[in-house]
Design a protein around this nucleic acid. Structure first.
Length: 428
RNA sequence: GUGGGCGUAGCUCAGUUGGCAGAGCUCCGGAUUGUGAUUCCGGCGGUCGUGGGUUCAAGCCCCAUCGUCCACCCCA
């Protein structure tokens, strides 16, 4: 019989990896909390219509990447390909953005049917941040400061850079799109197959083509920023001067456009050159029209999403992680013989009552040498050994595993106090 | 959907022109020993991704298929 394996592009996160994920999650919660953001949790499945209306009908996500299926009652449902639409839907449904501002975040799995590659999977995880009801560049600034603080907390600031652009108002964007299409149509002989296709579907996307010939052609294309409306330009200028004042480095990239239809004005990406082709680690922007598009009142909004798998890859490659994350326990207790085994269970429980350290009891048997090896391999800082000799004297052999010291015999009733005082064994 | 690389022990990988299926690590047992190191001995572990074909003989050659990785497209 064929073995059942995980679905392509949907990965198990194994015990060797989960400490890294927890480290990332803990730091993220701490940073978001320090800015006063609240967590929101929405279902993983939504009505298909929600994503079609928000992301845009002609995007690749909606056209060919969604996990869509019929519920038993015939209703079309979709596994969420991103988090913003669900977040807006939930806020609107529960009146969270009616005459009030919100600062929200969420995390969880997203699903897109794509060919997996480095940093890109069919089930992937995002940490999303969304704000509602605030129209000025100060909230855009806040989001960028927040994300920069997160990189600092994670120790990856040196590995990411900020790309910034403004897409202007939808009128300005439409105007520019016409001029760009006119220009590119004139030079269509220089466009590759992909760009020709996008010329009719989503011409702005040609701006961030990876084809060097197309990029060369774009050097003589009409200037995006020359078409911008005065209001958007002022918003962008204010954002830039806020970032300058706060000491956040950025690079204005007039060819930065985002794939989802709902973005306007401010857009940004945190990118890295350490992850191969999938260099975008965090991206977002302003989507002032989306709430209205989904049936709500016109509501200004800005947000971003980070790819958790990509951050994990960066952490593995670039960050110095705390030593204790690399081991699963601190105190390893091993007993030999029935009486000692019963004593060890009670000892472990009593230590867990009072110690701040993690305590693991060896339940796997084996020879004395074998048990010692297991203690070392467990990653623990200290081994507690109980055999017949120890039982007779009512003591435990305490053996530090990371220092070259001889074992010390400690009476049962003093072991908690001795370990509590022995902080030097547990440092790092 | 398109292109390329790779599929041999739990892991990392050798495997010659087609001729008995291998090593290191891990794990288990033993010797030495400082209850953990070093060294040494032994053991467990395989439908060579799968299915066809060629051949006296296929891990190796041919065809198909699946999986995986990377890249394109797209995106976090």
């Amino acid at each position: 019989m064929a073995k059942i394996k995980a679905i392509r592009g949907m990965n198990d996160i194994l015990p060797a990896q989960t400490p890294l994920w927890q480290y990332l999650e803990q730091n993220t919660r701490a940073v978001l909390s320090s800015y006063g953001y609240s967590e929101i949790r929405t279902p993983i499945v939504e009505q298909t219509e929600l994503f079609c209306r928000s992301i845009g009908e002609v995007t690749d996500i909606v056209e060919k990447e969604m996990y869509t299926f019929d519920d038993r009652n015939g209703e079309s449902l979709t596994l969420r390909p991103e988090g913003t639409a669900s977040c807006v839907r939930a806020c609107e449904e529960h009146g969270l953005i009616f005459n009030q501002v919100q600062r929200l975040w969420y995390t969880g799995p997203m699903f897109r049917y794509e060919r997996p590659q480095k940093g890109r999977y069919r089930q992937f995880h995002q940490i999303g941040v969304e704000t509602f009801g605030m129209a000025g560049p100060d909230i855009d600034t806040e989001l960028l400061l927040l994300s920069a603080r997160l990189w600092k907390a994670l120790g990856i600031s040196h590995a990411v850079t900020l790309q910034l652009n403004t897409l202007g108002s939808s009128e300005a964007r439409a105007q520019y799109r016409d001029r760009l299409v006119a220009f590119l149509t004139e030079h269509r002989d220089q466009l590759d197959e992909d760009s020709l296709r996008r010329l009719s579907t989503n011409p702005l996307r040609i701006l961030d083509s990876k084809n060097p010939q197309v990029q060369a052609l774009l050097d003589s294309a009409p200037d995006f920023h020359a078409c911008l409306d005065a209001e958007s330009l002022a918003h962008f200028e204010q954002l830039k001067s806020n970032l300058d004042a706060a000491g956040i480095a950025y690079e204005v990239n007039p060819r930065l456009v985002r794939g989802l239809d709902y973005y306007g004005r401010t857009v940004f990406e945190w990118v890295t050159d350490k992850l191969g082709a999938q260099g975008t680690v965090c991206a977002g922007g302003r989507y002032d029209g989306l709430v209205e598009q989904l049936g709500g009142r016109p509501t200004p909004a800005v947000g971003f999403a980070t790819g958790v798998e990509r951050l994990i890859l960066l952490l593995e490659a670039e960050a110095c992680l705390p030593e204790h994350l690399k081991r699963a326990t601190d105190v390893f207790i091993s007993a030999q013989g029935d009486a000692a085994g019963r004593q060890a269970v009670l000892l472990a429980e009593s230590l867990r009552d009072v110690l701040p350290w993690r305590v693991t009891l060896d339940c796997s048997g084996g020879s004395a040498k074998n048990k010692m090896k297991k203690a070392v391999n467990s990653g623990a800082c200290v081994a507690l050994l109980i055999g017949d000799a120890e039982m007779e004297q009512q003591v435990v052999a305490l053996r530090p595993l990371r220092h070259s010291q001889d074992p010390q015999l400690v009476p049962f009733d003093q072991i908690a106090a001795v370990l509590t005082a022995a902080t030097e064994y547990f440092e790092e």
